[in-house]
Design a protein around this nucleic acid. Sequence first.
DNA 1: AGGTATTTAGTACTTTAGTATGAGACTGTT
DNA 2: AACAGTCTCATACTAAAGTACTAAATACCT
Lengths: 137, 137
Amino acid sequence: MKKTVLIFGMLALAILALLQLSQYSLLSGDLKIEFVISGIAIVFFVIGVFIQKKFRKEEAPFVEVDQKQIETIGLSKREYEVLVEMASGYSNKEIADRLFVSESTIKTHVSSVLLKLNAKRRTQAIQKAKELQILPF
Amino acid sequence: MKKTVLIFGMLALAILALLQLSQYSLLSGDLKIEFVISGIAIVFFVIGVFIQKKFRKEEAPFVEVDQKQIETIGLSKREYEVLVEMASGYSNKEIADRLFVSESTIKTHVSSVLLKLNAKRRTQAIQKAKELQILPF
DNA sequence: AGGTATTTAGTACTTTAGTATGAGACTGTT
DNA sequence: AACAGTCTCATACTAAAGTACTAAATACCT
């Protein structure tokens, strides 16, 4: 955070210096106006790219869930809920408690999910689900 | 893709128009040079931000692996390799074959990983590892 | 109302996963 | 050379996960 403030401060100073420099160069006739404007344009373009990049990195990379994919795969509402819990790292028992049903029920759902995602294990199902963008992150 | 080309074309035209406009305004003395330069700066800054945003969206959301985190957690090189395989959805036996060691060895590594990540299950370890940004995606 | 899909739950069983412990081989450090 | 850390592997467990059925209660659809 402190680093960010520092960078912004430096940037502001650099911009001011650049503007002053441009004016003097123009007034003294050292440079043609096209070059100055182009230079300014390029510099600020780069700054824009840089700033956007910086903020993006601090954002969480969030992939939208592809609702259509879920349908084409044929996952039911409950099965998808179980998949989400699975991906969060919960055991069958824990999922059962969280969804207020028995562990048997969760096992049934998990088996369906594995079948529909063509996976042998829950970890593989999670991986495939992320590739298909039916899970966030 | 076609859309991208179109946008870039329009953008190029807009920039040219803007540059011409700036020069005429300056020569005719309608505007002070400070305003023109500031205007150009702002426009190109916005363009930079926009372009970066566009490209980022088309990229796969890829989180860099935080090497320092791995160290502070105390994961060894081999343990991290096993963690990556785990996250890919492989079973202990499969990981053993892929890394040319016995399943016992993998079990040992997995237990260490669970301990160091403070997880009860491999799915939870994967989840935590992603939160700590020591796994891609 | 009858058919279809979903959700729930059970039993019985097999397969993985995970724990605890011990121990030999190898590597780099002091 | 002695030591710490890593990597390897084994045995003997216990605990989850997953399969293969069967089956009843809902819910949705036309």
